Computed example of a mutant assay.
Amino acid sequence: MSVRVLVVDDHPVFRTGMTTVLADLDGLEVVGEAGDGGSALEAVERLAPDVVLMDLRMPGMSGLEATRQITARFPEVAVIVLTMDEDDDSVFAALRAGARGYLLKEDGGEDVHRALLGVARGEAVFGPRIASRVLSFFARVPAGAAPVPVPFPQLTDREREVLDLLAQGLDNASIARRLILSEKTVRNRVSDILAKLRARSRAEAVALAKDAGLG
């Protein structure tokens, strides 16, 4: 039986190209495509894929939030992230959201093929460069040490840092100076934070942060 795959990416050309590549690989069947996280949720419910190949950065609902909702609502569906982002924040945020694999768009078709078949069997699969990051991280954790819980695991480390500064009363310009970022980047981070926390305003996000001990 073929592994049923849903391809999710906001770039139509990439989506079409990936669908064409996967169609030629043994043991796979592409059952649909989606261009954003919201459409991905609808497609998962309608098409019942075995694996979702998910981009992270998309308009509307992000791939990270879509991964979180898919794994919560459809635990039998595996999600593999396929993205250009290889920073630690993105990798571990995706894993915390429930992704069972993480690949880079530069990885070859054989890597994608192995990953799709692997996660369908219940394995966790990473591309070569990502695997070394994950192994390095766990090598630094002392044996037997309990994981340290972090507030708002749906946020990246940088987003939590921005939220903490918001809770301290800093405005965008001050946060930008503190973190050596542009104000535009800070604005984008704040927007992402509000979306992930489902907060309707900065004030509501700050209140949530303070309740969690930030600030």
Rank of each mutant, 00 (worst) to 15 (best):
S2F: 09
R4L: 07
V5A: 07
P12R: 12
F14E: 15
R15L: 14
T16P: 06
T16F: 12
M18R: 03
L22A: 08
L22T: 05
D24Q: 13
L25T: 13
L25Y: 09
D26K: 15
L28Q: 02
E29S: 14
V30I: 09
D36V: 02
A43R: 14
V44Y: 11
R46S: 14
R46V: 07
P49T: 05
V52G: 07
D55F: 12
G60W: 13
E65V: 05
T67C: 08
I70E: 05
T71Y: 09
R73M: 01
F74G: 00
F74W: 14
P75I: 01
E76R: 12
A78W: 03
I80T: 07
I80F: 00
T83I: 02
D85N: 15
E86N: 11
E86F: 06
L95Q: 00
L95F: 14
A97N: 06
Y102E: 07
L104Q: 06
L104C: 11
K105R: 15
E110H: 10
D111W: 07
H113E: 03
A115N: 01
L116Q: 02
L116T: 11
A120D: 13
V125S: 01
G127I: 11
I130A: 06
I130K: 05
I130F: 03
V134H: 00
L135V: 15
F137Y: 15
V141C: 05
A145E: 15
V150G: 01
F152P: 06
F152G: 00
P153T: 08
P153L: 06
T156F: 03
E159S: 07
V162D: 01
L163T: 04
L163N: 03
D164V: 04
D164W: 03
A167D: 09
A167M: 01
N172G: 13
A173M: 03
A176I: 13
I180C: 13
T185W: 10
V186E: 05
N188H: 14
L194N: 01
R198E: 15
R200L: 01
S201G: 03
V206Y: 04
K210D: 03
G213F: 05
